[in-house]
């Protein structure tokens, strides 16, 4: 298996802010690699450097064997990019959008139309080839952008938040198409996402990014197994004195814990043994636990384990912000 992307010591600073901090990473050519991190963690900056839009401050990377600093043109010829924003021309038809992109990449005329027809079929848009993109649903537009980035048979496909803003059904469809394309085109995929389910369903390798640093890399299962003991206890409480929380944190059966609203999430070495100890300890300190759930760890727990924060905290904040903006607009 060959290495598709080789990142060495890659760094990007914006003034005092270190957006990407000395990242080292190899991505194998058979991978769908997910860069998982909350908004502002630096994953988009990382992708922008790998796709030659941004110049690194320090370090470099080889993409499809070419150095992003020395051979940006060769890198561009070997990659496809699907950006976070919708960049289709809605006044033009699906076919025209594809055809123009193929021309940018110097795809020879005789190959162009067969390739476009083939790709439109893959994502179920063959019937809509000659409709203007303005008439497409969000999911259809996303699918079209996806295949537009494939017209020139790239070796590596970069996708920045590929399903943000799509409804669950459209997201599922995009995931299915991505898996299919990965298999049929034998293409490496590098995806940024802040959706845990996306990383879990789609990616066979995940890198956790936080504050510009690559915190951990592995398959989703490996990452989960790496949490010692591998169990998660969720305890809903009605009262929890600080003393109880501090005592729990320093207990040897607790690996990590996080408090949000009325829920304690505890990573435990051995869940079954930890449950009674937790209840006992909290009761002894005058707290009261209402219910306890024992479950398998998810990637969110993995994220919590490595960063000390839940990735959801971030998404929840964004959601709240959205709601308040909406309220302000209605006021």
């Amino acid at each position: 298996m060959s290495i598709a992307v080789q990142i060495s010591n890659l760094t990007k600073r914006f003034g005092n802010l270190v957006a990407v901090d000395r990242i080292n990473l190899d991505i194998q050519s058979d991978e769908i690699f997910g860069l998982l991190g909350p908004n502002g963690s630096g994953k988009t900056t990382l992708i922008r450097m790998l796709t030659t839009i941004l110049q690194p401050t320090d370090g470099t990377a080889k993409v499809a064997g070419y150095d992003i600093r020395k051979n940006p043109t060769e890198v561009r010829e070997s990659i496809g990019v699907v950006s976070q924003a919708m960049t289709l021309d809605i006044e033009l038809t699906a076919w025209e959008n594809m055809d123009l992109y193929a021309k940018y990449y110097n795809v020879p005329r005789e190959i162009r139309s067969t390739r476009i027809r083939e790709l439109l079929k893959v994502v179920g848009l063959a019937e809509r080839a000659n409709f203007t993109v303005g008439s497409f649903s969000g999911g259809m537009k996303r699918r079209l952008e996806l295949i537009r980035s494939l017209v020139h048979h790239p070796k590596i496909l970069f996708l920045d938040e590929p399903t943000t803003g799509l409804d669950p059904q459209a997201r599922n469809a995009v995931w299915e198409y991505l898996k299919k394309i990965h298999k049929e085109e034998q293409i490496t995929m590098v995806i940024t996402t802040h959706y845990l389910d996306e990383a879990e369903v789609l990616c066979n390798k995940v890198g956790i990014v936080d504050f510009g640093k690559l915190v951990e890399v592995g398959t989703p299962n490996e990452l989960k197994r790496k949490i010692m003991g591998g169990d998660v206890v969720e305890a809903e409480f009605s009262t929890l004195p600080d003393e109880a929380f501090n005592e729990l944190e320093s207990s040897d059966f607790v690996v990590k814990l996080n408090k949000r609203d009325n829920t304690l999430t505890i990573l435990a070495k051995n869940g079954a043994e930890a449950v009674p100890k937790i209840i006992e300890l909290v009761n002894a300190k005058g707290g009261k636990i209402r219910s306890v759930t024992l479950r398998e760890p998810t990637l969110d727990d993995v994220f919590l384990h490595y960063t000390g924060r839940s990735i959801r905290e971030d998404t929840v904040v964004t959601k709240k912000k959205f709601v308040s903006t909406w309220a302000a607009m209605r006021r």
Binding site: T51, T52, I53, T73, R76, E77, I79, V81, S83, A85, M86, T87, D89, Y101, Y104, Y105, N106
Partner: peptide, 13 residues
């Protein structure tokens, strides 16, 4: 605004 111009930069143009 639609980042189309930036999108040009990932192509060999």
């Amino acid at each position: 605004q639609r980042v189309v111009i930036e999108g040009y930069l990932t192509t060999p143009l």
